[in-house]
Computed example of a mutant assay.
Amino acid sequence: MDFPTNSPDDGPVDTTLGEQLLLLSLDDESGAEKESANVAFAIAAASLVELAVAGRVEVAGDQVTVLDATPLGDPVLDTALADIDGWKKSRPRKTKEWIEHLKGGAVAGTTKNLVAKGLVREETKRVLGLFPVTRFPEADGSAEDVLRRRLDAVVMRGETADERTASLVALLHGAKLHGLLYKKPELATAKTNMEKIAHGEWAAPAVRQAVKAAEDALMTIVVVTTVTTVM
């Protein structure tokens, strides 16, 4: 299954929603990740949205239900699908709990995918000559350039969002990652526009339902994480 970020004329590299989130968060030069905690949760939520779009799961309110356990051919999504399908405990996990559970593997797998696709490269350096730190600077900026142009057209110029772009906007909004796209003075306008897009009628009900559930769960997680960090 393909997960296109762009039209066929824009370039050959396709990326998932999770990969798009990670690309937006990585500093092109240093490879350091911005807003890493929120991005991790957003990437996990993106896995649920991708599975819903592909008809593999239904995400309704607090529940995630497997409809079809057939793998999609993407390592991150297939691992998430198998994990959800294999959950046989008496109490089902809520959407928020699945996002929290999946985030570690989703981030690691998504990073590996970006390296394999040649969009970032892996570099390990030692801080103070002692501590190894791995970063992922940009190797090919074409996919991110196309992505940012399309997001800007939808968010700031009012162009109609397709299903995947609107899903990405909703995930960014839910995880409070507006700053990955805009700074002041555009930031306030961007937040307002992104909220409108996130809550618009841009996809089939089942997909909108999944995105809304993921967005609501992200907002709850981010608030709790922020309060805990401050305390």
Rank of each mutant, 00 (worst) to 15 (best):
P4E: 06
T5N: 13
S7Q: 13
P8K: 14
D9P: 00
D10H: 13
G11E: 08
T15H: 08
T15P: 02
T15E: 04
T16M: 08
L21E: 00
L24H: 04
L26F: 05
D28E: 11
D28Q: 05
A37N: 06
A42N: 06
V59N: 00
A60F: 01
A60W: 01
G61M: 10
Q63M: 08
T65E: 08
D68I: 01
T70M: 11
L77E: 03
G86N: 11
R91Y: 03
R93I: 01
K94F: 05
T95H: 08
G105A: 12
A106H: 07
V107F: 13
G109D: 07
E123V: 13
R126M: 07
V127L: 15
G129N: 07
L130N: 04
V133P: 02
V133L: 10
P137H: 11
S142K: 11
S142L: 12
D145S: 14
V146H: 11
R148K: 15
R149N: 14
D152V: 00
M156G: 03
M156I: 01
R157I: 00
A161W: 05
R164P: 00
R164D: 01
A166N: 04
L168Q: 04
V169M: 11
A170I: 01
A170N: 05
L171K: 05
K176T: 06
L180V: 03
K183N: 12
K184G: 09
E186H: 10
E186K: 13
A190E: 09
N193S: 15
M194C: 12
A198V: 02
H199R: 15
G200Y: 04
P205M: 12
Q209L: 14
A213P: 02
D216A: 14
L218F: 09
I221K: 11
I221R: 13
V222H: 10
T225R: 15
T225E: 14
V227E: 15
T229N: 12
